[in-house]
């Protein structure tokens, strides 16, 4: 059994309006950051998982992203996984 560190990011699909991102973008413009656009606010999650190998760990992470950590109706996700260094 190996342990992996996983970083999951979840954000709204591009087609879905993100009012938080929009509000942050307006604030950035107010502060003078004129060139900023396409601001999106998402979620970041970290977890550790024990699995036989990397492919088993990836399979489990993808399942939890599809079923719990994101709602595929409106959100999309990405993750990074690496073996925990002791």
């Amino acid at each position: 059994m190996k342990t992996y560190d996983v970083e999951v990011r979840v954000w709204l699909k591009p087609s879905v309006f993100d009012p938080q991102g929009h509000a942050v973008e307006q604030a950035l413009h107010t502060l003078g950051f004129e060139g900023t656009s396409e601001v999106r606010v998402g979620k970041y999650m970290h977890l550790s998982i024990g699995a036989a190998d990397e492919s088993a760990a990836r399979k489990a992470v993808e399942e939890m992203c599809e079923r719990v950590l994101s709602n595929p109706v409106m959100e999309t996700y990405a993750y990074e996984l690496k073996e925990t260094v002791r």
Partner: peptide, 11 residues
């Protein structure tokens, strides 16, 4: 039920 419920557009 289909669809989803999101943050109000005006926050």
């Amino acid at each position: 039920l289909p669809g989803a419920l999101l943050r109000n557009d005006h926050l």
